[in-house]
Design a protein around this nucleic acid. Structure first.
Lengths: 228, 228
DNA sequence: ACCGAACTACAACGAGCGTTGCACTTTTTA
DNA sequence: TAAAAAGTGCAACGCTCGTTGTAGTTCGGT
């Protein structure tokens, strides 16, 4: 031991081994499916380990806190992933630098709503998990809940509010002094409504019916918020 | 035994003892709180019995199917109760025989939205249970789910659609050919939005903020659906 | 090829759960 | 008041689960 040992310690402390991180994300990804399918109480450690293709002992090596720590990790991890995807879709449809022409507004908003609703189909595990978070809100640590809220619905809401403000600045919408509320109303009339009627994507909703709901919701939104 | 015994049997079969029914409803009422607080998996039979003030053995005497049968009973029982309350509030605000004057329309709709949102505070156990139903949709028997859906949100949606049709017939609203969709949009802009932002009533939402959401939602609805 | 780290299989533990049977007490009812 | 119905307390069963220790195995980096 001596200077060599010290150098090693210093390096180990500095560099977070990427190998471990990748494995932990793989475990968390698999756990997201299990927690979403079974819920926290029903999900057994054996099932979680099996779904990740590892032994229970390895799971405890990576997450010394056991099931609880794994759950916390999964919640913050998937929220970030899905929120990022949502922001990406929003940026793809609504470029704040180039506001749409007035006659294209409704078409663009329909595209945006379709993109949001598509998230439900593309991340079923995540939204199943969200259902359980809603249900077990009393048993989830407050800090975890706050972090999830901020990274998930909060981030999306803020970004959409900015987009609404942009459209208002371009003279396409009249947000009636509250772009954040306009953003919430847009979500309520489109994705929230579909979430409600399809029971979080569990009930099969005919594509034609979903489209009718989306276009109808956007039409109502435009009637309520179009610039006079 | 003999003719006396036969008469007794006949009577017993004819009359459903009201005593048992009352007790079972009391048990179910207490169980609603426990299931809502803990969820199905976490709720233990001991807790359910203690909350109802009975022994576990008595619980099994009333519900031979055990926890599962009790849960099924609770779901259908509370759904009916709350749906009935919701219909009552709707009838109290919107009398189909006497449509409001045009200048009172928005005020009446705000009153209706407030009545709906008030359900959240008045039946917290029920809505906590609904959260768990949503989360465990895969583990709830399909028949129970269908019955709940029909008695709960379904009944309310149909009644509200009728009310919207009435308002349209009175020349106060333009439902754009789909009174049911207008009803869903009303719910989405008012109670659904508040449910979402307050996490099913768990997050404390300042009364002033709730009121701002309600009036803002109704205002947007009126802008989208007022008769031209 | 080697060394250390990561991983596995296996067994065990303590606790909690749903459920049932049994003997006993209380309440209702005729 | 006496029979019958309803309720109680207790013990026990079998099962699942979370978690940990240990000894042996595989694997990545040098």
């Amino acid at each position: 031991m001596g200077s060599g040992n010290e150098a090693w310690l210093e390096q180990a402390r500095r560099e977070v081994p990427p190998r471990k991180l990748a494995k932990q994300m793989a475990i968390a990804s698999a756990a997201c499916g299990v927690f979403g399918r079974e819920g926290y109480a029903r999900a057994s450690v054996d099932t979680l380990a099996a779904e990740a293709g590892i032994s229970t002992r390895t799971l405890y090596n990576h997450f010394p806190g056991g099931k609880a720590e794994l759950f916390r990790t999964v919640v913050s991890w998937t929220s970030g992933e899905v929120a990022q995807a949502q922001l990406a879709r929003m940026a793809a449809v609504l470029d704040p630098e180039r506001p749409p022409r007035a006659e294209d507004l409704e078409r663009e908003l329909v595209a945006l709503a379709r993109a949001f609703v598509g998230l439900l189909a593309d991340y079923p595990n995540h939204f199943a998990l969200v259902r359980h978070i809603h249900a077990e809100v009393d048993h989830v640590p407050a800090e975890v809940l706050a972090a999830w809220r901020d990274a998930g619905p909060g981030a999306a809401g803020r970004a959409l509010a900015d987009a609404m403000a942009s459209l208002a600045a371009a003279g396409l919408l009249d947000v009636h002094g509250d772009p954040a509320l306009a953003a919430q109303h847009f979500l309520a009339l489109t994705s929230h409504l579909i979430v409600q009627l399809s029971s979080y994507g569990v009930l099969p909703l005919a594509p034609a019916e979903a489209d009718r709901l989306i276009t109808g919701g956007v039409a109502a939104f435009v009637r309520a918020y179009r610039a006079a």
